[in-house]
Structures are given as structure tokens and as C-alpha cells.
Computed example of a mutant assay.
Amino acid sequence: MSTPAVPRGSGRDAITRAARESFAERGYHGSSIRDIAARAGLSLSALYHWHSSKQDLLAALIEESTEEYFRRCDEALRDAGDDPADRLAALVRATVEYRISRQVESTIAAAEWRNLEPGNRERLDGMRAAASRLWADLVEDGVARGAFRCEHPGDARRAVVAACNAIAQWYEPGYEPGYEHDRGLAVPDLVDRYTAIALRIVDCS
């Protein structure tokens, strides 16, 4: 039997990185727990010390990345003040930056959500619902205060969120502005662009 490679950092971090790479390259069903352990440079027994199964790994990866998204949103909103437009801009910025910096995790969550087992899906559905509520409360508050004039706040919220989330599917660094989809647009410029789009969608006064 071959000796595992040297662990790539601490055991838990190495497993997380290996699972992320394997799910991104091969998909959930194409990845094996043995392959993930080998990528991490760990034995199977060492992997099982941290995670009981491949399903547990998938759920943990999605949960950890979602928790980071909430942290970023909380930080952005704390610094945004009370103005609805400023708060919407802060949430757009946090989401765009997250989708780019955690592009692989975002893509895995979108593609592999259907492979979550019922217990994990129910728990993580609660986190998804909380994220939707964060956006909904912000848009509804803007409408109530007369800052946003959109006639259908729910549809406006879904359109803004979908646009921001989709960035993870197409953004590629290293392209120059003006090329297809402006895939190499600098992140601050992309934030400005999507903030302007969001404010138009909610019909900000």
C-alpha cells in the first residue's frame, strides 16, 4: 500500500481543501472518500476522525462557506448605516466579493445541493431561508420608507440575488475589460456595476 502524501496543513483544513477540489473536479458522486483522503495526504482513519462520511464532508463544506457569507454580510451591514440604499449597496458588495473569493464553494453548493441527504438539506435549507430573509427585510424596509419604489419587492429581491449569485458561474480572473462578459473586470468595478443594477431593479428614489 502506498504511503499517503504529507498532509497539506492541519488535518481538518487539509480534508476541507481536498474535498473542495474533488467535488469541483469530479462532482459529488464522482468523488470517493478514499480519493479525498489521498488528496489530503491523510489515511482513511485520520479522515474519519474529522468526518464520518462523504455526505458529512459535503454538508460541512456548504455550511462553513454559508456561515462565512453571513459573517461578511453582518460586517457590511454594521458599517452601512441606516439608509436603505447604502444597506442594499453593502449587501451587494458583500455578496459579489464572496461569490468571487469563494467561487468554488459557491459553485459546489449550487450544483450539489440536490445530493444532500434529507437531514442535512433540512438544516441547510434553514440557512438559505435566513439569507433570503436578510435580503427580503432590507428591500421591504426600503419600500416601506419610500426609498424603493418597486411594485413587486419579492420579485425585485429575487432578481438582485440571482444576478449576484450567478457571478460565481461565469467570472474568470485574468481577462481584460471589454472581452466576453467582462470576465476580468476588477472586483471593485464589478461591485459598482452590480450595485447600480440592484438600485435600478428596486427603483431607488
Rank of each mutant, 00 (worst) to 15 (best):
Q55V: 00
D56E: 15
D56M: 13
L58G: 00
L58K: 00
E63V: 00
E64D: 13
E64K: 08
S65Q: 14
E67Q: 15
E67T: 14
F70E: 14
F70N: 09
D74A: 13
A76K: 09
A76D: 04
A76Y: 12
L77D: 02
A80F: 02
A80T: 01
A80Y: 07
D83I: 10
P84L: 09
P84Y: 05
A85G: 05
D86E: 08
A89N: 08
A90P: 08
V92K: 09
A94H: 01
E97R: 11
E97Y: 12
Y98C: 06
R99T: 03
R99F: 01
S101L: 07
V104E: 05
V104D: 08
E105K: 02
A110Y: 11
A111W: 06
R114L: 07
N115L: 09
E117T: 01
N120S: 14
E122W: 08
L124F: 09
D125C: 03
A131R: 10
A136Q: 10
D137A: 08
D137K: 07
L138W: 10
E140S: 11
E140R: 12
R149H: 12
R149M: 12
H152M: 08
G154C: 11
G154Y: 13
A156T: 06
R157P: 05
R158V: 09
A159K: 09
V161L: 09
V161W: 09
A162F: 12
A163F: 10
C164P: 06
C164H: 07
I167W: 04
I167R: 04
Q169W: 12
E172H: 12
P177Y: 14
P177C: 12
P177T: 06
Y179T: 15
E180A: 15
E180M: 15
H181T: 08
H181R: 14
D182V: 12
D182K: 14
R183P: 05
R183V: 04
L185P: 07
L185Y: 12
V187H: 00
